[in-house]
Write a protein that binds this DNA or RNA. Structure first.
Lengths: 168, 168
DNA sequence: TTGGAATGTCAACAACACTGACATAAAGTG
DNA sequence: CACTTTATGTCAGTGTTGTTGACATTCCAA
C-alpha cells in the first residue's frame, strides 16, 4: 500500500499506490523513447541531433524569437545553443537578423530550407501523436495534456502556456 | 485545418488540428524535463547520471534480470550499459551473480545501498507524479496512461506491459 | 569438437551538455 | 561622458552518454 496512513491528500477520488505511480513513470520513459524515435531517424541521416530539432521547432513556433528567449525555453547554456545555431545558420536553415530596436539582439527565423526540415520532422512526430490520440480516444487526450501540464516545472509551464493554441 | 481531406481516421469524435498536435508535442517536451528534473538533481550530487537511474530502476523492478534483458529494455548498446553497471557494481549498489542454469548469464540485484538510492530517486519522482495526478484529476490519469501507451513503439510496449501492475 | 550465444573489455569517436573566461557591441544609468 | 549592465558570441576544457569495431572468454548445444 502506497499510503499506510490512509490519507489521500484531500482528493477523495484518487487512491494512488506506489505501483500505479511507478507505472506512470515507466510509461513516461517508454513513451518518450517512441516520441523521439521518428525525428531521430530523420535527423541522423542529416547529421543533426535532437538539439537541432528543438531549436528548429521553437524558432518555427515563435519566428523572430531572440537567442535569450530561446535559451530560456530550451533550458540550456548559451554555449550549447550557440553550437547548434551556428551549424544551422551555416547550413542555411536559420537566419539571424540584428534587432531594429535593440541592435544587440539577434532575431531568429527559419529559411525555406529550415521550414522544410521542420515540416518533415513535425510531420513524423504529428503522425505518431495523431495515431496515439486516436488509439486512446477523445477523452484520453484531454487527460493526457492535463497530467503533462501539471508535471512541468512552473517556469516551463509559463513558456508552454505562452505559446498555447495560437491558432485556436 | 489539419486534415484538408476531411477524413478523421474513423474516430468520428476526433478532429485533430496540426496546432493541437503540436501542443501535444510541446507538452511532452516540457513535461519530460520536469519528470527528470528531481532525479537529476539527486544524481548529480552523487556523480551519477540518468543512465545509472534507469539501470537502478529496472533492476529494482525486475530483480535477477539478466544483462541481455536489461539491454532490450533500455535500448542501448552493451558497451554503454556495461560502463554504467561497472560503476554501480564497483560502488556496491548492484550485485552481479553468475547464473545457476546458464553460467554465462549474469543476474543483477540491488544491494541494500542500491535499494536506498532507488527509493530516494523514486520517491522524488513519485511525489511529482502524484502531484500531477491529483492536479489533473482521476479521469485524466487514465487518459494520460492510454495516450502514452499508444505512443510507444511496439517492442517497448511489450516490455512496458510485461511489468504492468504486478501488485494489483 | 565445432559453432554460436552471452558476456565483458578495449579503443576511438561523436553529440550534447556543462563551467569558466573573455570579447564585443549596444543599451541604460549616473 | 564614464560606467555598468545586457545580449551575444567564442574559445578551451570536461563529463556523461551514446555509438562502432574488434577481440577474448565462457559455455551451451548440435
Amino acid at each position: 500500500m502506497a499510503d499506510p496512513t490512509g490519507h489521500n491528500g484531500g482528493e477523495s477520488l484518487l487512491f494512488l499506490t506506489d505501483e500505479q505511480l511507478r507505472k506512470g513513470i515507466e510509461a513516461m520513459f517508454f513513451a518518450y523513447r517512441g516520441f523521439t524515435a521518428d525525428p531521430d531517424r530523420i535527423l541522423s541521416e542529416k547529421s543533426y541531433g535532437r538539439a537541432h530539432h528543438r531549436a528548429v521547432h521553437f524558432i518555427h513556433r515563435a519566428p523572430g524569437t531572440t537567442v535569450n528567449n530561446l535559451l530560456a525555453i530550451l533550458g540550456v547554456t548559451k554555449q550549447s545553443l550557440n553550437r547548434v545555431l551556428r551549424s544551422l545558420i551555416e547550413d542555411g536553415l536559420v537566419e539571424s537578423r540584428v534587432g531594429k530596436k535593440d541592435k544587440r539582439e539577434r532575431h531568429l527565423y527559419l529559411t525555406e530550407t529550415g521550414e522544410a526540415l521542420e515540416r518533415e520532422l513535425s510531420a513524423a512526430q504529428r503522425t505518431r501523436m495523431r495515431a496515439a490520440y486516436r488509439a486512446a480516444g477523445p477523452d484520453a487526450v484531454q487527460g493526457f495534456r492535463q497530467v503533462l501540464e501539471a508535471m512541468m516545472d512552473s517556469d516551463m509551464r509559463k513558456h508552454y502556456l505562452a505559446m498555447k493554441d495560437k491558432t485556436v
